[in-house]
Simulated scan of single mutants.
Amino acid sequence: MTVKLLNHREEGPASAPPLLLGPSLGTSYALWDAVAPELSITHRVVRWDLPGHGGSPAGLIGPGATVADLAALVLELADALGIERFAYAGVSLGGAIGLYLALHHPERLTSLAVICSSAHFGGAAPWQERAERVRREGLEWLADSADARWFTPGFTVPRLVQDHREADPEGYAACCDALAAFDLRERLPDIAVPTLLVAGRQDPATPPAQLREIADAVPGAALVELPGASHLAPAECPGAVLTALRTQLNGAPASGMAVRREVLGDAHVDRAQARQTPFTARFQDFISRYAWGEIWTDPTLSRRERSMITLTALVAHGHHDELAMHVRAARRGGLTPEEIGAVLLQTAVYCGVPSANSAFATAQRVLAEEEQEESRRG
């Protein structure tokens, strides 16, 4: 007897670390179209369709289905593909499935990313009502409001809206049944899998507070809030989602972010993160992975030595805003004002007196500000 599996698509080298990507209710694996190809450079990516969505048979689940039933289908798929342990990322209902797997099958997960999702979905009644109406009337009435529920004003992905219209009503309704019965709030502290939460700041369905609730309860969990993102963040802000997932999956950006905070201070990094947009997300990822995750973590030179080199390079190119930031970083790293002055004096010989003159003015201002801050604290 042939076992029916979730419809799925594989990308990336078969020998690479496996990564399973779960969709949201009403969409297909096309939700990951703008993210999966990039992730497949370093991972064996498997994205799949919910029952009754995309190419998955609706009959894989029935009325009264639970998230446990859906999680079992995901494990059946992984087993059929010969995947024992895998990283997992899921959106909305896909994220709920990930939480269930982390609680009940932690030995199967290497990491978990929960995107625009929740540990509960507002109680049973609204989902039961939606399921009943979908079974009676189909999905056209609901698909008409998809853009408002899924995206920020003026944005849409026609393929995903069409997926919503074409989903099987019975399969969709059974997934609503699963959301109606889902509530893992009391079990969140038991999750021991490395967990990342990604929230869309403009998400009306699962607002950031619901992701923060998970982050506060799961030991060691990290939370990223994406400006300009609504409920389907991988489709609307793929660069920002890609950056967040790479940070978790590849490790180097996470290490780089820790070094960045140690060198520049939490306040500076928090400001930079708050200013991040989907347009700048890939650049921020580049900085975290290469500048801070590879160069500043190389043990060949000490951080004091790297600070001195950085100050010199910034003077040479006239980057005075960056120079001010790295004067503060040098002080955090233990350089004295006298040592900073000696570095700048050296630049007068090799970078030119006018450049050094401007650099001394910048450094003097920063050091004076530090003295004032210390006086206020004292």
Rank of each mutant, 00 (worst) to 15 (best):
P194Y: 12
F286M: 12
P337A: 15
W141A: 15
L160R: 10
G138E: 09
A281R: 05
A348M: 14
A124L: 06
G95R: 08
P204T: 06
T280M: 04
A313N: 12
L345Q: 15
Q248L: 12
V343R: 12
V198T: 02
R275M: 12
T2Y: 14
T297Q: 07
L77N: 03
G265C: 10
N357S: 14
A65E: 07
A143H: 06
G62R: 12
R187L: 15
Y29D: 03
R328Y: 06
L344Y: 10
H326M: 14
I191K: 11
T110E: 09
H104W: 08
L139Y: 04
L223V: 04
P204S: 06
E129C: 04
E262P: 03
A124T: 04
A235I: 00
A146I: 05
A102F: 06
V349F: 13
R130Q: 11
C176S: 07
H43M: 00
F121W: 09
W296P: 04
R271E: 13
A258D: 12
A148Y: 01
T347W: 10
V46E: 00
E213S: 10
T362G: 03
V74H: 04
A71V: 07
E305Q: 14
P208S: 05
V327F: 08
P194N: 11
G62V: 08
R377K: 11
L188P: 08
R303M: 13
F182V: 09
V193R: 11
L109Y: 06
G293D: 01
D69V: 07
D33Y: 01
L196I: 04
C116W: 01
I97H: 02
P13L: 10
V241T: 02
F279N: 03
G318M: 10
E84S: 06
E140Y: 04
G64D: 09
L75V: 13
R135L: 15
H105W: 04
A222G: 01
R275P: 00
R165D: 05
T27R: 10
A215W: 06
T280N: 02
Y100K: 09
T300W: 07
H231M: 11
P189R: 12
E137N: 12
I340E: 07
S288A: 15
N7E: 10
E294A: 14
P153G: 02
A87C: 01
S307D: 13
G333P: 04
G333Y: 13
D321I: 07
L301H: 14
E338F: 08
L188W: 14
I287W: 01
P18N: 05
A80S: 13
L197R: 08
L245G: 00
R306A: 10
G123C: 10
T152H: 02
F151V: 06
R271S: 09
R165F: 03
N7T: 05
G352N: 13
A361Y: 00
E371M: 14
G333S: 15
K4C: 03
L103P: 05
I191C: 08
E84C: 04
P51R: 09
